[in-house]
Simulated scan of single mutants.
Amino acid sequence: MKFREFTVNSHSTREFVDSGVEERDMNEIKTYLDEVNNTAGKEKGFSLILMENGADVYQNLEGYGGYGGVMLKGPHYIGLRLDKVDHEIEVLGAFYLQSVVRKIYDLGLGSCWISLKEITPDQAEKILGGQVGTIQHLLVFGKPTKKENKPEKHTTIINCDSKYEQDPYGIAVITTNDETRLSVVDTIFLQTWGNVAPYEEMEKRGVLDLLYYVRNSPSFQNGQPCRLILKDGYAELCIINPEQEENYTDAGIMLFTLEGLAKELSFPSNWHFINDDSGNVEYRRVAHFDL
């Protein structure tokens, strides 16, 4: 399936059937998680923990997990365990957990990000199952519930006429047009921070379509904290309000979206994390991305 189709049609699922995922699909998911954990995860300091006993997880986190303590109930969960709270690990972990969202989508299943910012240490320890580290996010997944005679709630991205906006954490932001999304010129700078990149320059470089698509990358509460600075042959991904940890998670999701679109549109798509120790309180560079 084309990546652009995934970005357009993918949406957060908040209601699941109780029967869970079929064994064949679950085995595919397990195989993919093992691949991630044994390669990138082992090297970079994170792991993806499969929790098939969804009822136990929900009971443990009800009233604490999710947004404002609203926990999503599902048959299965995947936890993003980090060795430590570290911006690079947060970015990479989010990148690969979003890749799991794509894998689950390709299997015809639904999923939704869940924030664990409000859980207690005892709850976190129970989720980690004795593993060392910290956990800030879960992914709930399973077969979506489809109700008869009611339009299926979903969020779409890219489509300017969409009624809904994408939010991977399960918070639907309803709109009647694209006005809630920042425009391309609001999110893309040329050479230096704050220097707005003209449409003509983006067209000249052949990146306008890519940048239009990627600006719709899902983010917590539709906050859109990511910005791109176009340089010569590459771009720098930055976040505003660098003191907010969720923005580094959103940067990882943005990088997955950017890489997938770049590959499909025949751009180089190589990237690496930037350890920006400038102390800038307005924005922070997060990644170098070849274009």
Rank of each mutant, 00 (worst) to 15 (best):
G54C: 04
R227V: 09
R14C: 06
T7C: 14
T120R: 02
E282A: 15
D167P: 01
V100M: 06
G66T: 02
D25W: 13
S12Y: 04
V57I: 05
D232W: 03
Y64N: 11
S162Q: 09
D277E: 13
L258N: 05
S12G: 08
D290P: 01
C160P: 14
P151S: 13
S10V: 14
E282G: 12
T155R: 13
E148C: 11
G20E: 02
D178G: 13
R215Q: 02
L138F: 14
E259A: 07
R227W: 10
E259Q: 07
F189L: 05
F267D: 01
A197Q: 02
E282N: 13
Y64Q: 12
G74M: 02
L33T: 01
E246H: 13
D122W: 00
E246R: 13
S99R: 03
K103F: 07
P198G: 06
S47I: 07
C160N: 15
E203F: 13
D209W: 00
P144C: 08
F189V: 03
D86A: 06
E152F: 12
E236R: 05
L97V: 07
T187Y: 01
K117A: 14
E15I: 01
Q224V: 02
G68W: 01
Y169K: 12
N247M: 03
S10A: 15
P75R: 04
D186H: 02
R102I: 13
R227I: 04
N27Y: 00
T192P: 05
V91L: 04
K126T: 08
R14D: 05
T13G: 00
S99W: 05
R284E: 01
R81T: 00
E201Q: 04
E22K: 03
W113A: 00
H76S: 14
Q136W: 04
A172K: 13
Y67T: 11
G223V: 12
A197R: 00
G68R: 02
L50W: 00
F3S: 04
S219A: 02
A235W: 07
E23F: 11
T187P: 10
N53Q: 10
L50G: 05
K2Q: 06
I157K: 13
R285K: 09
I135E: 04
M71L: 04
H87L: 07
A235V: 09
T7L: 15
F256I: 10
P121S: 00
R215E: 02
E245N: 13
N222G: 11
G206Q: 08
E246F: 12
H154M: 14
S12F: 05
E90Q: 15
L61K: 00
T175Q: 09
L48M: 04
L116V: 01
N37D: 08
Y77L: 02
E148D: 10
G66H: 04
L128P: 08
V57F: 03
T249Q: 08
G20H: 03
K44W: 01
N280M: 01
C238L: 15
E203I: 14
L50T: 09
E201H: 08
L258S: 03
Y213N: 12
V91M: 05
S10G: 11
L182D: 01
E90P: 03
S162E: 07
I274S: 05
N159V: 09
I239Q: 04
D86F: 01
I29D: 01
I171R: 14
T39F: 03
E246M: 14
K143T: 06
L72G: 02
D122G: 10
L230Q: 07
R227E: 12
A235M: 11
T180N: 13
